[in-house]
């Protein structure tokens, strides 16, 4: 028998990091009449430098000013008729 049969300690579940070590290039899409869509490995921090609560890798940031979930987009730009082009 070659396999190590000693019981293993439970494998610690790493805290899920949205920023993997292998940085994927960040892209920011300025969605026409909508938010800024950010993909890749980036940190989103508040004015104090602390990371902001975030539950998904790709986020949409408000740029119409009307979101109630700022800095995230909540789709309000569609109600206010926000235009990104003059």
């Amino acid at each position: 028998m070659t396999a190590d049969m000693t019981p293993k300690a439970p494998v610690p579940v790493p805290e899920r990091s949205l920023n993997s070590g292998n940085a994927a290039p960040v892209s920011i899409v300025a969605c026409p009449n909508g938010p800024l869509l950010i993909r890749g490995d980036f940190e989103l921090v508040g004015a104090d430098g602390e990371e902001l609560p975030r539950t998904r890798r790709t986020v949409a940031l408000c740029r119409c000013g009307a979101s109630v979930l700022k800095p995230y987009c909540d789709g309000s730009h569609k109600l206010t008729g926000f235009r990104s082009e003059p």
């Binding site: 969605c31 938010p35 998904r56 949409a60 979930l69 995230y72």
Partner: peptide, 16 residues
């Protein structure tokens, strides 16, 4: 509440 934020992201990815 989750869908408000999630789908504001998804709609951009889905459409474009």
């Amino acid at each position: 509440d989750e869908h408000v934020e999630a789908d504001a992201v998804h709609e951009q990815i889905a459409g474009r």
